[in-house]
Design a protein around this nucleic acid. Structure first.
Lengths: 220, 220, 220, 220
DNA sequence: GATGAATGAGACTTCATTCAT
DNA sequence: TATGAATGAAGTCTCATTCAT
């Protein structure tokens, strides 16, 4: 028994979902290339090989398809790099899992280089609804990361700290480094070293051989 | 002797620079509020109390004034928070200077809350020239920060590391935390504690009491 | 023996005429509610529970179904209120028959309140064919009424006059009063009194106790 | 000293009001010819010799100019034919004034034949605001006419009656006759006779030589 | 006959930019 | 220099109608 929308169209042989998907695919490429405002509905339908009116059978307005493209992208990012860990295992395992997630995240963003750049450049600047989408994205990944930090604290791998703040610290460092990496890969170490360098920075900071520990630096 | 454009206009009593500035001021407020696309040239001239055509006596196109608003804003940010340090002094002095810069940066961004949000939301999404402006902004502040890290390494306060990468790490953490702070100040510690928590994270990381040092965690 | 189109459809169990009728019924309601331009073919087919394409198996275009709805409505009106009288009987009978027709007309229009309002509001404004339909409607009812007046003249109940002109006079008074009645029933007497007041106005005018007869008023 | 908008435009030499008027003039002709829906903004601006965008400097939307055309037309009609009379003078004077108004009304409507036909055909069918305009039109003229009837009653020229109802009766008869006259002038007497025939019908009705008076016809 | 996805012409509206005074 | 009416390209969205299955 087929699903509701699984019946292929009489004329085109595409199901409703397939057609919708082909519009989304066309839109993703065009938005990634030219951004929201320089991409017209006409561009999208031409790229998807349908008439202009067809667009409005699948999306109520131009914004909606942009919204959808971004939503799917952000879900992909969340899925790739943002994983709820278990409060178990050794410190090595804990860090190792984090390491794997980071590498996976880099892979996904690199595979969607243009889309990533566009998404973070235009970010939330055109719609309260879109702003809300981004806000929720950051909130969700921050909560997962804060949760992971709490687990780390329980395990003793992480020292007590303001977990939510540190979650945003981690998100920010990854975000900025990734965006620079996508522009100038030649300025950065290869993926594995890059990940390690960042993990280490997060784990034990940058204190040098002659730097006194924080409690001596600032006794207050 | 007055500068070339210092002669006040017969009708308006404003010098050319003053008029230009009043357009920029009006534009800044409107862009901050509504973003680039929802602000019309008409809005700007109405807010600045000049006729529409006057706009084009001071700016060649709408993008230019946006570009200028962003440029001034980014310069302000650079000036506030990004200072080339001296490779001298004690570790305490080194960190103390960083601390002062961070607090100053928070002050400036908070004072320009709406503009900051808008600028980072719309970011570079509408023009190669604007994209280039942002790219240069990040490159410049990254270079300053990398330089400071090199100094820290020389002083022994900072361990040897990939300075440029760590510069982006620092930029990212500040950027993301700031943007969240502007949205949800109630989720974060007050400024001084916030700065310390971040400095400490950068300085000695989050390693907990039972976390082994990195070289033991990953002997490779 | 069944008529040509009386064979019920295998799938739907409806004869061609029944299906056509259900489209007309749906259209009548929608047109009455929203008028011609705000009612889409999609609205109609959805309300009639058929696919959009089905519409064009029964009507060649959207206008046609509107035309048909109006035609049926105008026929209903004609049938209800416009009756050819016989040139026989007493004055009382003559007036009494007129009175019955008027009451019947009010009933029909009141029962189709929305449709009546819509029909007279949009009237003939969208199509020469429709314009012609309305023109014929007025001509036909005017001719019947003129005929009745001629009978009245023959009976001596009605004075000699320009019968066609007076027919339009009667049509106009009924039409306008009816349309106002449908909007503001509270401004008018109840049906029977309303009819009598109008009949009397038509029959002996509004001349007051001190008003001289017309031939004295205007001796020419 | 000139009025606010009396300064002619630098480029075109037209004041704002003149330009607006030329758009209205163009629109009136086109609407009269083709109705609302078949007239495009493009048609209007082309006829007025301005660019399409200019339209929106003077009207917020297409409906607005239609609304304005109808409003001006209805005001013209009101002004021409709907005059508040004085409760003074002889019956002859009273009727004579009515007669003059009626003739004036016929002149105005005949001079605006196409516009009149269009206006009454499309009537109120496209907008609540327009519906309201028409509703108010009818209410206002009905109130004036009802007032006049009250005066007539005071003078004894008119018998006591439901004045508002009779006002609508009069409006309807004039309206319908006028619309038929505009279509088929050959079916009707010349203006002066037409007016007299209608006045007489309203004044003393159509009772014939053998028709008993109403109170005998219907003793109830 | 019935379906409903697809079509595409065409309408309205916005707004950056120009230019005659 | 300042004005602000005028421009017109361009974009979004609607919907009557078609047609392959």
């Amino acid at each position: 028994m087929r699903a509701v929308n699984a019946k292929p169209n009489a004329r085109t042989g595409l199901t409703r979902d397939e057609r919708r998907q082909s519009l989304l695919d066309a839109a993703r490429v065009l938005f990634a290339e030219k951004g929201y405002h320089d991409t017209t509905v006409d561009d999208i339908t031409r790229a998807a090989n349908v008439a202009k009116g067809t667009f409005y059978l699948y999306f109520t307005e131009k914004r909606e398809i942009y919204y959808e493209v971004i939503r799917v992208f952000l879900d992909l990012v969340k899925e790739a790099g943002v994983v709820v860990q278990e409060p178990t295992g050794s410190p090595t395992e804990f860090v190792e899992r984090t390491r794997r997630n980071a590498r996976q995240l880099i892979r996904v963003l690199t595979e969607n280089r243009q889309l990533t750049r566009m998404a973070f450049r235009e970010a939330a600047g055109l719609d309260p609804r879109l702003t809300e989408l981004w806000r929720r994205f950051y909130r969700e990944i921050a909560e997962v990361e804060a949760q992971n930090l709490e687990f780390g604290i329980q395990l003793g791998v992480v020292r007590p700290c303001h977990a939510l703040l540190q979650a945003y610290v981690h998100i920010g460092m990854v975000e900025r480094v990734m965006l620079e990496l996508l522009e100038h890969p030649e300025d950065f170490p290869a993926t594995d070293d890059l990940v390690d360098e960042m993990l280490r920075a997060g784990y034990e900071g940058l204190r040098g051989p002659y730097g006194p520990p924080w409690n001596i630096l600032f006794p207050g």
